[in-house]
């Protein structure tokens, strides 16, 4: 029995003073929990953003997000402390694939009965401090709430593979130059080609494992980066309109959540039986999940 997606919400920067990841993540999470509106406990909160607001390395950003979810304010109703009575919050980082791996963790804890539901948040900041070089990602965050699903419904299989021969294809790092902190993205020309070939290999492995053919897949929600990735995969697998392509908004870890949010209440999503979540990122790492409904 897999866990099901209760709800999904996204948030874009509103004003200059709250355009960072943490603000977006808090808004998305609040909308997510408000929509749910039940008293069940949230047992886990995982933040999967890679590029951290103000380059904060501790505490976990999830702890800072959680603090604001619980905190009383004049503007927002405080969520009941009881909903977060025994919550574990931490960050998970694995490039664009961290999101699916976090879903796998929450799904596992729900399956083993350790928690009733869990929240996964993804998004990235253009850090306010220091300089940036070649940073291609847009700011924004998404939140997804998982809870117990039915028999053979919900998430049924996860698989992550890595291809370390391409570990230098995409590197995001900071260094100190001329007295300034600089965030640099170093992307090699072959990153797109290698990403596509790695995903095709991983997908073949995955479909063999779940005993499905690509024709059995009704909808694919994928990473949107690198540019051209979605169209290459669509053409390679003849997916046509089965794969969602965004309007080029440039999200990184949150891209699949923005895609899912666009589709979640549509007939296209509701009528899909086998939904494939497919991410690719630095490493090169691929993460794939199958969601049944």
């Amino acid at each position: 029995m897999g866990s099901k997606i209760e709800t999904i919400k996204v948030s874009l920067p509103l004003f200059s003073f709250n355009k960072g990841y943490i603000s977006c993540a808090i808004r998305a999470a609040k909308k997510c929990l408000k929509k749910r509106g039940t008293a069940e406990q949230i047992g886990m909160l995982i933040s999967t953003g890679v590029y951290r607001e103000k380059h904060i390395v501790e505490p976990a950003l999830s702890a800072l997000i959680l603090r604001k979810l619980i905190q009383r304010s004049f503007l927002c109703r405080r969520f009941s402390q009881d909903r977060f009575k025994k919550i574990l919050a931490f960050d998970l980082n694995n490039g664009a694939c961290g999101l699916i791996q976090a879903l796998q963790i929450v799904d596992g804890y729900i399956q083993s009965g350790k928690i009733e539901s869990g929240l996964v948040i993804a998004g990235d900041s253009l850090p306010k401090t220091g300089k940036t070089e070649n940073y291609p990602f847009s700011q924004g965050a998404g939140a997804i709430l998982l809870s117990k699903g039915g028999m053979e419904k919900g998430f049924v299989c996860f698989k992550t593979e890595s291809y370390p021969q391409y570990k230098d294809d995409f590197i995001g790092y900071t260094h100190f130059a001329k007295g300034k902190l600089v965030l640099t993205i170093d992307e090699k020309k072959n990153f797109l080609d290698h990403s596509v070939s790695c995903v095709l290999t991983s997908l073949e492995n995955f479909l063999n494992e779940v005993k499905l053919k690509i024709e059995d897949i009704d909808l694919v929600i994928s990473s949107q980066y690198p540019d051209g990735f979605v169209s290459e995969i669509r053409d390679s697998l003849d997916l046509r309109d089965k794969i969602f392509q965004s309007d080029g908004t440039g999200f990184h870890t949150s891209a699949p959540l923005f895609a899912l949010h666009s589709l979640f209440k549509t007939q296209r999503f509701r009528s899909a039986k086998n939904i494939l979540f497919l991410t690719v990122g630095a490493g090169i790492t691929t993460s794939i999940a199958l969601y049944n409904q």
């Binding site: 890679v50 961290g98 791996q101 590197i171 965030l183 790492t285």
Partner: peptide, 23 residues
Amino acid sequence: YYYEPSISTIVKQKIGANGALSF
């Protein structure tokens, strides 16, 4: 300071655990 790829990807290659699930 390295944001990505994940350090686990590098560690598993260096110790010869290439097939390990990692994050």
